[in-house]
Design a protein around this nucleic acid. Structure first.
Ligand SMILES: [Mn+2]
Ligand SMILES: [Mn+2]
Ligand SMILES: [Mn+2]
Ligand SMILES: [Mn+2]
Lengths: 224, 224
DNA sequence: TTATTAATTTAGACAAATCTAAAAATAGAA
DNA sequence: TTCTATTTTTAGATTTGTCTAAATTAATAA
């Protein structure tokens, strides 16, 4: 119907993420925090998004994204993650460098461009951070909710993603070779602080609970 | 010093092009025409660009781009043309499809992104329309000013570019296989209307003056 | 040289997105 | 339940880029 401005797209994406990954309800201040703006600005924008039927909004009652709004958000997330794949796989950026570039590229409007980019990249299902890429209809694989901190000593796991997307954390993990697809064996879990000794290829090292809590994994399934 | 907004970038690019390819002086109305906006809007913007020292502007006296402004313009033109190469060579778009997408992509700000894209593409010197791509310092090869309409019967030429960048014209040329790099032999030039009979690989066909005037060429130089 | 036409600038307004400060509503504690 | 603290909304401004209509300046023709 309407086509969203880049700003509206960013708001819808933030609201979508807060609706799904969010612990608390989607209220004005949580949106303000995640958008790094003021509550007053958010209130202004909520009225606009509501007028365009991308959200249901009643004063003081919080926000619920509509089916229409979700479609817009998923379209932007698809573009964002495909561009991130391009930047890492093709232009050889590190995984902590791509987010801010993708924040701009996700607003380039051509649908045909994204269709061809997707094809060129071989229809990837996950972005460099292990986040699933929605297809054209908005469908995507669900994320593993299992974190390394919940793993057991003596078991083998495959790293599938992260829950902290900060540059600092991503850089830290890359130093250890902890990237999606890598196999991680838990050698020992310390009773005292829940830190763990892990093995990644030939390397053995220590991970704090702080770190292991933010690593997503699945059970390792044999060779191939 | 300042960093330009996307709109300022578009104005500077337009002013740069009018300054160089332009027959007439760069005045308010010619900018308005090329930007598809009103003279009043242009006057507003000229003041802003002047404040930021990207142009020299005096009321009623017209515009001259500064060295600083030229640097900004060349940076945008570099991005625009590199993205056009990406879209045609990598994503396999046709040469008439890429311009409007490049109009958006040229405003993505990362310098490092463009550096890596340039490397990935093999440091191309020309875009899909035969226009030269400025390097990081703004230097570029100069365009051939020789058009096919000035060619001679019996001679062989290499197509190097076009002067009309409209979708209609580009589609038309593609139908004949008339793309940069192609060899064109002039078989005959009609005295009456200056139309010509040309040979391109195995095909022979007629071109009107209207068409040949908008094709840039250079003398054909042997094999290799 | 004066009158007319054309180009340019100014005036005033608007839409989008933002902000600060003040008012209003809601939630939590006593 | 009543007071207080927090959250949210409103009021009023600001910036960027745009517009129409009116005024001004420059160009040209008589
Ligand atoms: Mn990202
Ligand atoms: Mn990501
Ligand atoms: Mn172009
Ligand atoms: Mn081009």
């Amino acid at each position: 119907m309407y086509q969203p401005t880049a700003t509206e797209e960013n708001y819808l994406k933030a609201i979508y993420h807060l609706s799904n990954t969010g612990i608390k309800s989607v209220n004005t201040s949580s949106i303000a925090t995640s958008m790094e703006t003021t509550a007053a600005s958010v209130t202004d924008m909520l009225r606009k998004l509501s007028d365009k039927e991308w959200i249901n909004y009643e004063k003081y009652k919080g926000v619920k994204i509509t089916r229409k709004g979700e479609k817009v958000a998923l379209g932007i997330i698809r573009k964002h993650r495909l561009w991130e794949v391009f930047l890492t796989n093709i232009l050889e950026f590190e995984w902590e460098e791509v987010h801010h570039m993708a924040e701009e590229l996700e607003h380039v409007s051509s649908e045909e461009l994204i269709k061809r980019l997707d094809k060129f990249l071989g229809h990837p299902k996950f972005d460099p951070h292990g986040d699933p890429i929605p297809d054209q209809t908005g469908k995507m694989e669900s994320h593993d909710k299992f974190t390394l901190s919940a793993g057991e000593a003596g078991e083998k796991y495959t790293l599938t993603g992260v829950t902290d997307h900060s540059t600092l954390f991503l850089k830290h993990l890359r130093k250890y070779g902890l990237l999606p697809g890598v196999t991680v064996s838990i050698a020992e879990i310390m009773d005292y602080d829940k830190s763990m000794l892990v093995k990644v290829s030939k390397d053995k090292f220590h991970l704090s609970l702080e770190v292991s809590k933010n690593i997503l994994i699945k059970k390792y399934v044999g060779s191939k």
